[in-house]
Design a protein around this nucleic acid. Structure first.
Lengths: 144, 144
DNA sequence: ATTTATCCTACCTTGTCAATAGGAAAAGCG
DNA sequence: CGCTTTTCCTATTGACAAGGTAGGATAAAT
């Protein structure tokens, strides 16, 4: 399915910041952009959104940069996705009444698939994502 | 998350056809469009795609219309989605090497969420979708 | 021959994604 | 103070896809 680069870049940036936060360092837009290979002007907007969602703290000027607001272990992936991509975890819009089978199908399939995503991203934290780098091997924990 | 109307309309149309197929009737574009409240010219294109994917059989002219190619119990939802919305169940595209954490994050989160969808829609059939109208109450059967 | 249906292709309008650009504001440093 | 470095914020743009609309060609039944 389709994922926005914004979500992808944002998660990578957050992970990057988290790693540097552990050492008490701040990360600047330029640094992150270079490490993660992202346009730094585009990344600027993404970091702005993450700050407005209270996921990161910014300081301006020399020696400025970004650090995490909370430890990575309490940041849920769904928080990040919600901040960056309003539609990816959003409820499917209600549908007018007189529409045959459509309403039922939507509330059956769509909501289920949606719920599966939400359940998964609600439980997974940024720390887990970073720690393993690869996929967590807890297959079977999350259930539709 | 975002689902295309094409997939929504297509599933509703297929369900509609399935119901009428059971009684040996064919359903025409116009009839389906009215029952499901869809633009019939748009639906035409959708039914064309479903036919090209061998999900339905069409007959032209008077007394023409559409019927299912196979019983609804062997049509998997993933077949329908694949026929109508090439991206919804598609693998996430590979990413260039030198890209920091992005590659790992993508292959972790993205692929998992994607796999969850696929697993779910691979197991569910059109018949189940119709039969229950509401959600199947087999929560817990499908696992990420 | 005429009606009724599918078949097929082209087109159009609107919105969103992914950037790019450029400047304002603040923080540190000499 | 003045300069640099950083974040902050808004506007704009190009490309592309979604969601239709339109119109004619083709085939089957009566």
């Amino acid at each position: 399915m389709k994922f926005t680069t914004k979500a992808e870049y944002g998660l990578a940036a957050l992970a990057d910041i988290a790693i540097h936060s552990e050492q008490g360092e701040k990360a600047t837009t330029i640094e992150i952009a270079q490490r993660q290979n992202i346009s730094h002007k585009y990344l600027e907007q993404i970091l702005l959104q993450l700050r407005q969602a209270n996921l990161i703290r910014a300081s301006k000027g020399q020696k400025g940069g970004y650090s995490l607001m909370q430890p990575a272990s309490v940041i849920h992936i769904s928080d990040v996705l919600n901040a960056l991509d309003s539609s990816i975890l959003a409820d499917v819009p209600e549908i007018e009444e007189n529409s045959g089978l459509r309403r039922n199908i939507k509330s059956c399939l769509w909501d289920k698939m949606n719920g599966a995503m939400r359940n998964y991203t609600d439980h997974m934290t940024l720390a887990e994502l970073i720690e393993q780098g690869i996929c967590p091997d807890d297959s079977g924990s999350y259930v539709i």
